[in-house]
C-alpha cells in the first residue's frame, strides 16, 4: 500500500472494503483467514457453522482482537477492525487484508465515502431482491405453460393439461415455445443485471476492473479517491471471478 492509502481512514487500525461478490462466502472467508493469520498468530474465533456470514472475529494469543462485520450485500461491503484497543498486530493485519482485497479485485472504501456507499448499497440490495424475485418468477414461468381451455398451469413439456386432460395442439406448442423464448430472454437480462449488481458495477466509475487499467480509487461522481494503485486494478482485472451469482441470501 502506498502512503496515500493510509489516508483513506482516520483511524489506523480499521478498513472498509467492497468485494465483487454478492455476499461473503466460504471462499472469501478462507482468503481472509489466510491473510490475517499470516502473521502474529491470528486465528478465527467464535465461528458460527450455519447461516449467512454476517460477522467474523479473529484473535491472537496476546488477546488482540479483530472483527469483521458485513455492512451490506450486492456487492459485499465489509468493515474490519479491532473492537477495542488497537495495536501493531491489528495494524499489520489491516495492511494484509487491504492487499488481499485489491488482489481480489475489491475496492477500499475510505471513511469519507462510507456513508454514501452504504446508502447506495441499501438501494442496490432492494434492487437485488426485486431482481431475484423476477428471476424466480421467470424461472417459474419458464417451466409452465397455460391451458387455453381451462387456464390452468401445466408443465412446459406436458402433452396434456393436467386439469382438463385436453391434449395440447401443435399450434399451442409453437405459441408456447415462442412465449418461452421471450421469457428466456427476459431471464437472461435479469440475471445479467443481478450479476452486475453483485460485481459492484455502477458504484464507482472505474470499479470493478472491467474498465481495465484504471485506478479504482476514483469515485463515479468525482469524489475523493478511495482505492489502491494501478497494480491493484490490474490484479483485479485478472482476478475478478466470472463465477455464479448465488441466491440473495446464501448460506455458508
Amino acid at each position: 500500500m502506498s502512503r496515500q492509502d493510509h489516508g483513506l481512514w482516520v483511524g489506523r487500525s480499521y478498513l472498509h472494503f467492497l468485494l465483487p461478490v454478492p455476499t461473503l462466502s466460504a471462499v472469501e472467508i478462507d482468503l481472509l483467514d489466510r491473510a490475517i493469520g499470516a502473521a502474529d498468530g491470528w486465528t478465527p474465533a467464535a465461528v458460527t457453522d450455519s447461516g449467512p456470514v454476517l460477522s467474523r472475529a479473529w484473535e491472537t494469543p496476546a488477546k488482540a482482537e479483530l472483527r469483521l462485520a458485513v455492512l451490506s450485500w450486492y456487492p459485499a461491503f465489509v468493515t474490519l477492525g479491532p473492537p477495542g484497543r488497537s495495536g501493531r498486530a491489528a495494524r499489520s493485519a489491516r495492511e494484509r487484508v487491504a492487499e488481499l482485497v485489491l488482489s481480489q479485485g475489491g475496492f477500499l472504501v475510505g471513511d469519507p465515502e462510507l456513508a454514501r456507499v452504504h446508502e447506495r448499497l441499501a438501494d442496490r440490495w432492494a434492487r437485488a431482491v426485486a431482481l431475484q424475485r423476477e428471476i424466480d418468477e421467470l424461472e417459474f414461468a419458464l417451466e409452465q405453460r397455460q391451458c387455453v381451455q381451462c387456464g390452468s398451469a401445466a408443465a412446459r413439456r406436458a402433452a396434456h393439461c393436467p386439469t382438463c386432460r385436453r391434449r395440447f395442439t401443435g399450434a399451442e406448442d409453437v405459441a408456447s415455445d415462442d412465449q418461452h423464448r421471450g421469457v428466456e430472454a427476459a431471464l437472461h437480462d435479469r440475471v445479467a443485471q443481478l450479476t452486475a449488481l453483485a460485481r459492484g458495477e455502477g458504484i464507482f466509475a472505474q470499479w470493478p476492473a472491467a474498465a481495465a487499467g484504471s485506478r479504482p480509487g476514483a469515485s463515479a461522481d468525482g469524489g475523493p479517491g478511495a482505492g489502491a494503485g494501478a497494480g491493484g486494478a490490474a490484479d483485479a482485472a485478472s482476478a475478478a471471478p466470472d463465477r455464479p451469482v448465488p441466491r440473495v441470501v446464501p448460506h455458508r
Binding site: L54, V70, L71, L114, W125, A126, A158, P162
Partner: peptide, 28 residues
C-alpha cells in the same frame, strides 16, 4: 410430469441488513 406442478417461488423477500452508517467518519 414432475414439473407439472412447479411450485411458485417463495413470495417473502429476505430480510436485509439494517446497519446505520455512522456520521463520524466523514466528520473526522
Amino acid at each position: 410430469e414432475p414439473d407439472n406442478r412447479v411450485p411458485a417461488p417463495f413470495p417473502e423477500p429476505p430480510p436485509g441488513l439494517a446497519t446505520r452508517p455512522p456520521a463520524w467518519p466523514l466528520r473526522l
